[in-house]
Simulated assay, not measured.
Amino acid sequence: MDGVSGLTVREIRPGDGEGCARAWRDAGRHYAAIVPEVVQEPDPEGLVEWFEQAIGEPREEDTAWLVAEDDGQVVGLIEAAVIRPAPDARWQIQRDLSRVRLVINALAVAAECRRQGTGTALMAAAEAWGRRRGAEIAVTDTNLSSPLSVPFYEKRMAYHRQGITLRKALRPA
Rank of each mutant, 00 (worst) to 15 (best):
G76C: 01
E61L: 03
E61A: 08
L97N: 09
W50A: 15
D96G: 09
Q92E: 09
D70I: 00
Q53H: 10
G56L: 09
D62N: 14
E52G: 05
E52L: 08
L102S: 10
A80P: 00
L77F: 04
E79W: 07
R90H: 11
V67Q: 06
W50C: 07
G72T: 01
G72R: 09
A54M: 07
E79T: 09
W65S: 10
E69W: 00
R90N: 10
A64L: 12
V74E: 01
A54G: 05
G72P: 04
E57A: 12
A86T: 10
E79A: 15
I78D: 02
A54E: 08
Q53V: 11
A81S: 07
V100W: 05
E57Q: 15
D96Y: 10
P87G: 15
R99T: 06
R84T: 04
A54C: 04
G76E: 01
A81V: 03
L66V: 04
R59F: 01
T63L: 07
I83T: 12
I93Y: 12
E61H: 08
D96E: 14
L66I: 10
R84L: 14
L77P: 01
R101S: 12
E52Q: 09
L97D: 05
L77N: 04
D62I: 01
A80F: 04
L66F: 11
W65H: 08
E49N: 11
G56Y: 06
A80E: 00
I93Q: 13
W91K: 05
R59L: 13
I78W: 02
D71H: 14
E61S: 15
V74A: 14
F51L: 13
S98H: 03
P87E: 13
A89G: 06
E57T: 08
A81P: 00
E69P: 06
L97R: 12
G76H: 00
A64V: 11
V75T: 11
E60T: 06
A89M: 06
G56V: 04
E79M: 12
V82G: 02
D62M: 04
E61Y: 02
V67E: 00
I83Q: 14
L66W: 04
I78Y: 00
I93C: 11
A54D: 05
L77A: 13
E61T: 04
D96F: 09
A86D: 10
Q92A: 12
E49G: 13
E61K: 09
L97E: 05
I93S: 15
R101L: 12
L77E: 08
L102W: 02
W50V: 06
I93L: 11
V103I: 08
W65A: 14
W91A: 14
E57G: 05
R84I: 04
Q92N: 09
V82W: 00
A81N: 04
A64N: 03
